[in-house]
Simulated scan of single mutants.
Amino acid sequence: MPRYEFRCRTCGDTFELSRPMAESSAPASCPAGHDDTVKLLSAVAVGGSTAAPRAQAPAAGGGGCCGGGGCG
């Protein structure tokens, strides 16, 4: 079940809730009981590397479809 992070506008507390995706936009009360909360944007990536992809250097030896000739 996905976890969603919220922040209370009244007390400033940040908290997480596990709930089905169908309820991701439902209102949430903070642990102190305040109802003025906002869902925070999460930067969690699923199934990938945390490092940014690197651009590959072009192959040496010429252009064309094979990067070195011999395509005939």
Rank of each mutant, 00 (worst) to 15 (best):
C8K: 00
S25T: 08
G33P: 10
Y4K: 03
E5N: 08
M1R: 04
T37N: 05
C11M: 08
A60P: 09
R19Q: 00
C71K: 12
C11G: 09
A57K: 06
V46N: 13
G12N: 07
F6L: 05
Y4A: 02
G12T: 00
G61V: 01
G69D: 08
E5P: 04
G62H: 12
A51P: 04
R9T: 04
T14N: 11
A22S: 14
P58A: 01
V44C: 01
Q56C: 05
S49K: 05
R19G: 01
C11Y: 03
R7M: 15
R7S: 14
R54N: 13
C71N: 10
F6E: 02
E16H: 03
G47W: 04
R19S: 00
S18W: 10
G12K: 02
D13Y: 10
C11F: 02
G33R: 10
C66E: 06
G33E: 09
K39L: 12
G63F: 11
R9G: 08
T50N: 07
P2Q: 13
P58S: 00
P20I: 12
H34R: 11
V44D: 05
S25N: 06
G70S: 07
A57I: 00
G47L: 09
A57F: 02
E5L: 14
R3T: 14
S18T: 15
G67M: 09
G69M: 13
H34K: 05
P53D: 10
A32D: 07
T37Q: 04
G62P: 11
G63D: 14
G33F: 09
S24L: 15
D35A: 15
A60M: 12
T50A: 10
R9H: 13
S42P: 07
S18V: 15
T14P: 06
F15C: 01
P27V: 07
R3P: 06
G72W: 05
T14V: 15
T10Q: 10
T10K: 09
